[in-house]
Computed example of a mutant assay.
Amino acid sequence: MNAKSRAHYDKQRELVYAREQGRCVVCLKPITAGSVHHRQGRGGPDPHRLSNLLLTCGSGTTGCHGRIHANPAWSYDNGFMVRRHGVLRPEDVPVRYGDVMVHLTNSWEPR
C-alpha cells in the first residue's frame, strides 16, 4: 500500500471508530483497540469505503472479528460479510446492530 492509500485507509479507520462510537459492531462492547473488518474483502473496488468497514474486537482469528470469519453463513445473514459475486455492494446490504439492521453509507454518520 502506497503512502497516499495508507493515509486514506487510516482516515477511514478513524471515521469507522467514530461511527461505531468505539464499540464492536457484533458484541457492542466498548473497545480501546480493535480491528477494522472488510465486509467484502480487500479485492473489490474501493475496499476502504465506509460502507465496507466495521469496527470489531479481536483480530481476524480472535474475538468477534474471528467469529465473523469462522461463521460465514451467520456473517452473511447479519451483513457482517457481503458476497463478492453478484450485484450487491456493501451499501446495499444492511448490517445488524443489536436488534436492528442498518444500511451503511459512504459518508460519516454518527450513531
Rank of each mutant, 00 (worst) to 15 (best):
V26G: 05
V25N: 04
D10E: 15
R13H: 11
D77E: 15
T62W: 03
L88R: 14
Q12H: 08
V87A: 06
G60T: 03
S35W: 03
R111C: 10
N78A: 00
Q40W: 02
C24I: 10
K11N: 14
S51Q: 04
M101L: 15
H85Q: 11
C24L: 10
K11Y: 14
R13E: 04
W108R: 12
N106H: 09
R89D: 06
H37L: 04
R19D: 04
H48T: 14
D10H: 13
P47F: 08
H38V: 04
R83E: 08
Y76C: 06
G98Y: 00
E109Q: 12
G43I: 03
P72T: 02
E14R: 14
L50V: 01
L54T: 02
H37C: 07
L53D: 00
N52T: 04
H103Q: 06
L55T: 00
A3T: 11
G43Q: 10
Q12A: 15
P94H: 01
R23L: 09
G63W: 09
P47S: 08
C27W: 01
M81C: 01
E14I: 09
P45R: 15
A7H: 13
H37Y: 07
V16M: 09
N78I: 04
S107F: 13
P110H: 08
I31E: 08
P45S: 14
R13K: 15
H8Q: 11
K29N: 05
G34S: 06
L15S: 11
V25A: 13
S35L: 01
R84Q: 10
V16L: 12
Q12K: 15
R84K: 13
V26M: 05
S51F: 00
G63E: 06
C57S: 00
G63S: 05
K4G: 12
G63D: 05
R67V: 01
Y97H: 14
T56H: 03
T61I: 07
V26I: 14
R49V: 14
L28D: 11
M1P: 08
V36Q: 08
Y9T: 12
V93Y: 01
S5P: 03
V102L: 06
M1R: 13
Y97D: 12
D46L: 15
V100T: 09
R89S: 07
T105Y: 00
G86D: 07
G58W: 10
P45C: 09
S35M: 04
H38T: 09
Y97F: 14
T62V: 04
P45D: 15
P47I: 07
V100A: 13
V95C: 05
E109C: 10
G60E: 02
G98S: 07
G66Y: 02
Q21V: 05
E20C: 15
Y17F: 15
R89T: 10
L50D: 04
P47N: 11
Y97Q: 10
S59F: 03
P72H: 02
L55D: 01
K11L: 14
P90C: 03
S35C: 08
M101D: 12
G79R: 13
T56N: 05
M101T: 09
I68F: 04
G98N: 03
G79P: 06
